[in-house]
Simulated scan of single mutants.
Amino acid sequence: MSPAPNHGTGHTRETELSSKPHVRRIFSHVKLENLLAGLSGGVVSTLVLHPLDLVKIRFAVSDGLELRPKYSGILHCMKSVWQKEGLRGLYQGVTPNVWGAGTSWGLYFFFYSAIKGYTKEGRHAELSAAEHLVSAAEAGILTLTITNPIWVTKTRLVLQYNADSTSKQYKGMVDALVKIYRHEGVPGLYKGFVPGLFGTSHGALQFMAYEELKRDYNKYKKVPSDVKLNALEYITMAALSKIFAVVTTYPYQVVRARLQDQHNRYSGVIDVIRRTWRNEGIYGFYKGIIPNVIRVTPACCITFVVYENVSRFLLGQNK
C-alpha cells in the first residue's frame, strides 16, 4: 500500500496549522496608533490646503468645454471662485476630501507599517529600497480599494460650477454617493480606479524615497535608523520625497480626474489618453501640476510631521 495519501493529508494538515501562526504574525504588526496618527495628519493638512486641491482639479479637467470657467492662473482661479461663491466655494468638496484624505493617510500608514513590520520580522538588516517600494504599493492598493468612492464624490462636488445651475446636482457627500450609486451603480463609484492603481506607484515612490532619505541621513549622522528627527528634518525629507513622486507620476491624476468628471464622457483610460494627447499634447497630462505641487508639498510635510509625532506619542503611551 502506498503511503502517499496519508503523507499528503498530513502535509495539508501541517500547512493549515502553520498558516494560523503565519496570519497571527501579520496581525501582530497591525497598530491602531498608526491609523489614528495617519488620519490626524491627513485631516489637518486637508483642512488647511483644500482650496489648492480645488484649483488643481479644475485645471486638470480644463479641456475647452464651454461650460467651464476660464482661469489665467492659480490666483485668478481662487479669486474668481471667491468672488462668485465666497469661502464656501473655495471649500466645495471639502467633506469628502477630509474623509478621503484622513481615511487614506490613516489606512496607508496602518497597512504600510504592518506590511513593513511583517517583512522585516526576524531580520537585523534594514529593508531594501525595493522592499519599501513593494510594501508601500501593497498598502496603496488596499487603501484605494476602500476609498475610491470617496474620491469620486470629491471630484464631482469640486466640479459643480456656480455659473452652470444644471451641474449643481449634488447637495453634499452622502447625496453624491447615493445618486452616483443609483444612476451609475458600483462602476460609477469606481471610476478612475484603474489610473488610481497606477497612482499607487506615486505613494510607493514617495514612501521609498522618504525611507531611504531618512536612513541615509541617519547613517550620515551615525545614529540608529529609527531615531526621532526634529520637525525641520521631517519636513525636508517629506518635501523632497513628495516632489520626486509628483513629478514622476502626475499624469495619472489628470486621467483619473477626467474619468470622474461628470461633464464629459470617456469610454475608458485609453480614450482619455488618446483624446488628451490629440487635443492638448504632452502639456495636457501636466495641467494643474503647479497648484498640485504647491498644495501637496506642504500637505505632505504637515501630514508626516503630525504622523511621526502623534504615532510616537500614542505608541509611547502604550509601552
Rank of each mutant, 00 (worst) to 15 (best):
E66Y: 02
L315Y: 03
K70A: 12
L144H: 04
N218K: 12
L107Y: 04
W105M: 13
E280H: 13
A139R: 05
L259C: 05
S128E: 06
L65A: 10
V227Q: 13
F198K: 06
S241T: 09
Q160D: 13
K120Y: 03
P51L: 12
I74A: 04
L232V: 15
F111V: 08
G73I: 07
P224K: 07
G100F: 06
K154G: 06
S167H: 10
K56A: 15
K171D: 14
C300W: 06
T147N: 11
G122H: 06
D261R: 03
Y161R: 04
W99N: 00
G117F: 04
I294L: 15
H183R: 12
V174E: 01
L47D: 07
M173R: 00
Y112P: 01
I243C: 06
W82S: 14
Y307T: 08
T95I: 13
V174H: 02
I150H: 05
G268Y: 09
S267W: 00
R275G: 06
V158M: 12
T9H: 12
M237C: 11
G38C: 05
F59Q: 08
T155C: 11
P5L: 11
L49M: 14
N6H: 10
S267Q: 07
D175T: 08
L127C: 08
H76W: 07
T248E: 01
K219N: 11
L35H: 00
Q206V: 01
V186K: 05
A4H: 10
V174Q: 00
S165R: 14
A139M: 02
S167Y: 04
T249G: 02
Y210V: 03
G106N: 06
Y108D: 01
L142G: 02
F27P: 01
I57N: 09
S113E: 14
H183Q: 14
S62D: 15
L49C: 13
S18L: 14
G38D: 03
L232Y: 11
T153W: 04
F285N: 06
D53W: 05
L240T: 10
L177F: 12
S113H: 14
M237A: 09
R278M: 12
S72H: 09
D164M: 10
F207I: 07
A125T: 15
I235N: 10
N97M: 08
F198T: 05
G316V: 01
P195C: 06
H263T: 11
F304H: 12
V269H: 01
K191C: 05
K214F: 05
G38L: 06
R258A: 01
V30Q: 04
N230G: 15
R88E: 15
T153L: 12
A137S: 12
A245N: 02
A130W: 13
K116A: 12
K221A: 11
H202W: 09
G73S: 08
W151A: 08
V254E: 03
L205S: 04
N309F: 15
G73W: 08
T153V: 12
T119W: 10
T200M: 12
K20C: 13
R295L: 02
S113I: 00
I290R: 00
V152N: 07
